[in-house]
């Protein structure tokens, strides 16, 4: 089995941990604009990120309690409607500053189901890996289409110069991150397919037999084998 796979497996809780860390710092960043109450923090977090990572109020209060325990926020009275307000402390401010100054760790990749799936599909009996790739490509490109449409809407909102501009810009950045991420995935899928075709063709040449890569189910059988390069 690929060694890289073993490296991923112990990281079960990693992505959960990352998400909880980003909620902590996200709330601190919002509190730096002034004291806020729980559901207000929730809606501001969601309007910045377009509800891409929805929070429930329970998560917000749990996080606030932990931040309070760690001395990063403190309760600061109530507003007129009786909501308990939280304010950032100096400790919280310095934690926030160091969050902005420190790059996000990418050296321990979270488990990626797709990478695992393709790794398992290599040589798996009865699995048409090109069909696995195509079905993922379909899904990924479809998601990109959706993000792109939302991005066009966000751009239009920014150009029309509404009062929510800061939220719109934040939302645009999040959307573009999703677009770049899905783009990287689509390119990687293309790359995997080309690599598999080349390897199969090379194996065919070595053994002197035609060893066609498994064609995608819907594609005609002639899809297999090396083809004469032709300008497209």
């Amino acid at each position: 089995m690929p060694r890289s796979l073993q490296r991923w497996l112990p990281r079960t809780a990693y992505s959960v941990y990352i998400l909880s860390m980003s909620i902590r710092h996200g709330l601190l960043a919002l509190l730096e604009h002034g004291p806020r109450y729980g559901s207000q923090l929730r809606s501001e977090f969601e309007s910045r990120t377009g509800a891409t990572w929805p929070l429930n109020v329970g998560q917000v209060y749990t996080t606030l309690n932990r931040l309070e325990r760690d001395g990063m926020v403190a309760q600061s009275g109530e507003d007129e409607a009786g909501h308990a307000l939280y304010a950032i402390t100096d400790t919280g401010r310095s934690e926030l500053r160091s969050w902005f100054e420190t790059p996000v760790d990418r050296s321990s990749p979270p488990r990626d189901e797709l990478a695992i799936k393709l790794a398992m599909a290599v040589g798996a009996p009865g699995v048409d890996i090109r069909a696995v790739i195509q079905s993922q490509r379909h899904h990924t490109v479809n998601a990109m289409q959706d993000y792109t449409r939302l991005k066009a809407q966000a751009l239009a909102a920014i150009e029309s110069g509404g009062s929510q501009e800061r939220d719109d810009v934040a939302w645009l950045l999040v959307l573009e991150q999703l677009i770049f991420q899905t783009e990287a995935e689509a390119r990687w899928l293309d790359h995997c397919e080309v690599r598999l075709i080349r390897l199969a063709a090379a194996a065919g040449r070595e053994t002197g037999t035609a060893a066609p890569p498994a064609p995608v189910t819907q594609a005609p059988a002639a899809a297999a084998g090396p083809r004469r390069p032709r300008p497209d």
Partner: peptide, 28 residues
């Protein structure tokens, strides 16, 4: 370029001269 194709309503995937798949516009 997938990022440019994503502006389309439908993306048609061609391989070896045949359409193998296409996406359909969903509700964003």
């Amino acid at each position: 370029e997938p990022r440019f194709a994503a502006w389309a309503d439908r993306v048609v995937f061609l391989r070896d001269g045949a359409v193998v798949d296409q996406t359909v516009r969903s509700q964003a």
